[in-house]
Amino acid sequence: MKTLKSLLYILALPVLLILWWILATAGGASFFVPTPADLVKTFIDTWIGERMFTDVLPSIRRLLIGVVGAIILGVLLGLLVGLNRTARAITEPVFEFFRALPPPVLIPVLMLLVGINDGMKVAVIISGAIWPVLLNTIEGVRAIDPVQNETSRSYGISGFARIRYQILPSAMPTIMAGIRQCLSIGLILMVISEMFASSSGLGFAIVQFQRSFAVPEMWSGIVVLGLIGVIMSFIFQWIERRVLRWYNGLKEVENAV
């Protein structure tokens, strides 16, 4: 009964919205908005097939390489800088500048420096998506509880073990918040680097559809991007729940008091 009710809560509004869409387009589709049936058919025709391998999967591959690269580099660099007070002070204004720089402007720069190729797109994603991870890692490392540090010192936990067992876990809640931003920036950069300079990929395909006024195809492309965003977000939340189980539990206990 309870599950039925919560299922109702989850499905009711989406179903209503889709019904409304069906009714609104029932009198014949407008130029800008296809009917749901049209969209589903176009979606299958367009994306289930060759395009999956020429556009979708290569885009996702670049996105994954870029995002994973940004996370690894960001965390490593963040540890290096965050653990040293002077390094933090030296890098702070420069890093603040790069955090504030809208990442898309990196595309023309990297087009010049790297050329127009796959490497450029991965470089754009890394250099744009690294900042939230980097800055959050620095902040997470900086804000570590001094009692934890003293505990590590007095029990002889130092070097790599200290990073592995104390510093990284302690900074993890902040780092995960950075990774969440990193993912959405990464996706944005994947799409627009393909829109800006490419001859393949999701972004390129969608712009092509728009330019040739293939409106249902264009919409189906938007749906693909939306699906990628939603799936990424769910995977992230799933991982975050596991990685930060201790943290969420701790917060719950603290808030209950």
């Binding site: 809560y9 509004l13 799409v191 919409w219 492309g221 991007l225 939306g226 965003g229």
Partner: peptide, 26 residues
Amino acid sequence: RRATNSTIEFLRPIPSVALIPLAVLL
């Protein structure tokens, strides 16, 4: 809150740049 939760969680992660072609068209 409960009724809109799923819709919000679904719409939120859609990258805004996906709307670029639509914006150009409009």
